[in-house]
Every structure is written in C-alpha cells, then in structure tokens.
Amino acid sequence: MASKSVHLPVLQSGLGGTLRRDAWWVGPAITFVLLSAFIVYSTWRAFENANFLYGPYLSPLYSPLVDTSWAKGWPIPVSGAMIILIGPGSFRFTCYYYRKAYYRAFAMDPPACAVGEPRGHSYKGERGLLIFQNLHRFTLYVAIGFLFFLWHDAIKGLVGWQDGVHLNVGTLVLTMNAFLLSGYTLSCHAFRHLVGGNVNSYSTATAGMLRYKIWQKVSKLNMNHMAWAWTSLFGVGLTDFYIRCVCTGAIHDMRFF
C-alpha cells in the first residue's frame, strides 16, 4: 500500500521554504527583470507603430511589412508588430528553455530547485490548461518561415540602397540578428526531434545515417539553446532599438564602404 509523504516542519515547506544557503533567488530574479523588460519594450514599440523603417532597414519587430490599413478606425490602433509578434512570441512562449525560465521566475512553480512553492495538490502541469505547449513544433515551423524574412532583410541592408552596395553598422546589426535567431531556431528541441530524434534505428531507417549526422550537429547546437535564446532576444531588442535611433536621428548609421 502506498505510504503518504510526511513533511516535517524542520524540512521547510511553503513558498521560498528551503535550507539552501546560496543565492538561489538571483537566477529567477534576473530572468524576471530581463523578460519583463523585453515584454514592456516590445509592447511599447508595437503600439508606437513608427520609426521601424529606414532606407532598406526594417526592424525585426515589424518584419515582414504588414499592411494594417484595414484596421483604420478601430478603437485600438493595430500595427504590423502586433500581428508579427504572435509568431516569434508563441515560439518563445512554448520553447522548452523559456518554459523553465518563466515557470521558475513568474509562476514560481518552483522558484528554484529544492525551494518550496505555494503548495497545491491540484497541480496539473502541462496536462491541463497548458496542454497547448505540446504544439511547440507548429510554432517552430512559423519561426523557420520568419528566418527567411530576416535573412532577406539582412541582405537588403547590404544591397538594397539606391546608390549600390553599402556596408553600414546597420547592415552588421541586421546580419547579427538573423544569425542569432537562426542559432536559436535551429537549436530548438522540436527541430532536433524533427531532423532525427524521432528515429530509433538510424542504421536501417531511410536516409538514416544522414539524419543521424544532422541530429548530432543539431544536438551540439541544442546544448547551448539557453545561450541562443538569450542572445537572440537581446539581438532582436538591440536591432530594433538601433533602427529606431537611426530613424529618429539619435545616432548616425556609420558607413564602412
């Protein structure tokens, strides 16, 4: 017969209850601040609906360009970013790395390892309301589509000028953004599964050895998925901020040639 777990008072229960002495709260606190800052910034930029296009430069928050004239007269102004952000936003929301990050930092479920949380035996995890997290692969397909637009924007930042080819700081910024987002998207766990993780016998499957080699490469990328997740998030924010600054004239877009 199953025996019931007895939680003794000395073994610290309840929210934040722990015998840990290290600064376990630092990681979730930093995550909370950084993710909140990005959400606030991107929301503000989505409502601003201006300063996202400069010559061939297009902010990643507004890429690809979406015509929102059909929403004229709506009580809430609709910008391209509001529509665009649904794609990459849902990819990040259902991402296996970000799930860890926000379950810890926002939901405190748990706040950190071996640290107490608000007790609840009604816990459903990702079997209840959050069951949609299983659809992460579909958001991956959307995110891969966005990569084409972002690389197009980066190349356009090089060759899209009226007077020929330019290499500017902005070109490098857009290229860096496309590179980081490619790293993040292609190191995704669902992508790893798709390219070969779902195979049991590489030696006998169709194109098995090729899939095994691709799976190995993606697995290497996947080991740094967290680093890709953060750097690409900063990349998007900084790229948009740079383009905004160039648009408003706050900074001059330096030209190398």
Binding site: K100, D109, G125, E126, H189, G197
Partner: peptide
C-alpha cells in the same frame, strides 16, 4: 505532461545524465 521542464532533475544528477534534454523532452 506533469513535467514542466524546470530541469532540477538534470541539475542534481550525480551521473550528469542530461535527463531533461535527452530523455524527457524527446
């Protein structure tokens, strides 16, 4: 589905098995 990928299992494994990335997520 109860697992919400908070990775504590991987952090404490003394055998350094990548439980979350190589086992649970797949």
């Amino acid at each position: 589905g109860y697992c919400n990928i908070t990775r504590c299992c991987t952090e404490v494994c003394p055998e350094h098995i990548n439980i979350t990335d190589n086992g649970i997520i797949p």
